Amino acid sequence: MTRLMVVLAAGLLLAACSQQDPPPEAVRPVLSMQVKSEDQQTLGRFAGTIQARYESNLGFRVSGRIAHRAVDVGAEVEKGALLAVLDPTDQQNQLRAAQGDLARVQAQFINAQANARRQQELFNRGVGAQAQLDVAQTNLTTTQAALDQAQAAVNQAKDQLHYAELHTDHGGIVTAWNAEAGQVVSAGQQVVTLARPDVKEAVIDLPAGLAERLPPDGVLLVAGQLDPSIHTTATVREIEPQAQSATRTRRARLTLADTPAAFRLGTAISVTLSSAITPRIELPLSALQSIDGKTRIWLLDTQRRTVQPRDVTVLSRDADSALLSGGVQPGERIVIAGVNSLKPGQTVKIDEDSPQ
């Protein structure tokens, strides 16, 4: 009997202890983020390249077969540098023919001068006829015109021979060749593209719809694809008036605010287009909790490591995020995972890897 009473007393004592000291509530780990206000709206990110603003498509001024190319793609050339040469045989033959005609006409001119002088002397002595003097002077004038024409033909033939060499009229970088040695080209045919590297710009392709409604206060951020830390801003210089039929995009050329040294010709870039908007707060959908038709978030007190609910107003939402009109201030920290298992004043464990 005494043993039974001891067991009962121990049970009553344990029951009393459990009523006085309830087990501590479990500390729940959560993910959190700091609320930030956005005043810029991203309209898109587009890939592009750095190109020269000024490019020249050069060609020979005469027809012929390309004998050799003097430079390759990527070569930097000075003003007046030789780029390519045509086979000069045809031009040399034309020059020799023109020089032969000039020699013949020069001989005729000398003879016409002598005849005109002789007829003038005879007329002055009264033994020559006026008609013969007129014929001699007319022949001299005609021969003088033929001499001028022959001299012009020689000069033209020399120019044609000079045109068999393709020289640059400004310094630049060779970016493309459209003809090879041994190829026959016509006068004016595009042979080589020369770019001036002193003025560079960014070139991107924009969707036709976006190109037509670019905001006037839009900001263009240009960054290198391989190293985004190298960046600058830009403004739209021109947009092609007609969209490309295959891609339905319009090419836009952007003037850079400054040109980093790493922005060489052909550098791949990324252009982000954004515009100013009324400051707003955007949160992930996982941070929202719906109860009785109301939407609330859980604010995190980082000092006490506790959470409290707060009602918010949602303006719009999409598949991943929601736009709020009020209820939370920039700088406050909210829970973004596990909101359905929280209670007011509950102690939580803050994940050190939570986004800032």
Rank of each mutant, 00 (worst) to 15 (best):
I204V: 15
D205L: 11
P207F: 02
A208K: 07
A208W: 00
E212R: 14
P215T: 09
P215N: 11
P215Q: 11
D217C: 12
G218L: 08
G218K: 05
G218H: 04
V219A: 14
L220W: 08
L220D: 02
L221R: 12
V222Y: 03
V222H: 04
A223M: 14
L226I: 13
P228G: 12
S229P: 11
H231T: 13
T232H: 12
T235Y: 04
V236C: 00
R237I: 08
E238R: 14
E240L: 12
A243E: 09
A243G: 12
A243W: 07
A246K: 11
T247F: 06
T247M: 05
T249C: 02
T249D: 05
R250E: 00
L254H: 00
L254K: 06
L254M: 12
T255Y: 05
T255W: 07
P260Y: 04
A261D: 15
A262Q: 14
F263V: 01
L265E: 02
G266R: 10
T267Y: 05
T267R: 06
V271L: 11
V271H: 02
S275T: 15
S275C: 13
A276P: 13
A276L: 14
P279N: 08
P279Y: 03
I281V: 09
E282Y: 03
E282V: 07
P284K: 10
S286M: 12
A287Y: 02
L288Y: 03
Q289W: 04
S290V: 11
I291M: 11
I291V: 15
I291W: 07
D292Y: 10
G293N: 13
T295C: 10
R296G: 06
W298V: 06
L299D: 06
D301Y: 06
T302K: 10
Q303S: 14
R304Q: 15
V307Q: 04
P309I: 04
P309K: 08
T313E: 14
L315C: 09
S316N: 13
A319F: 10
A322G: 10
L324T: 04
S325G: 15
G326C: 13
P330R: 07
P330M: 08
P330K: 08
I334L: 05
V335E: 06
V335A: 05
L342V: 00
L342A: 03
L342F: 02
K343F: 02
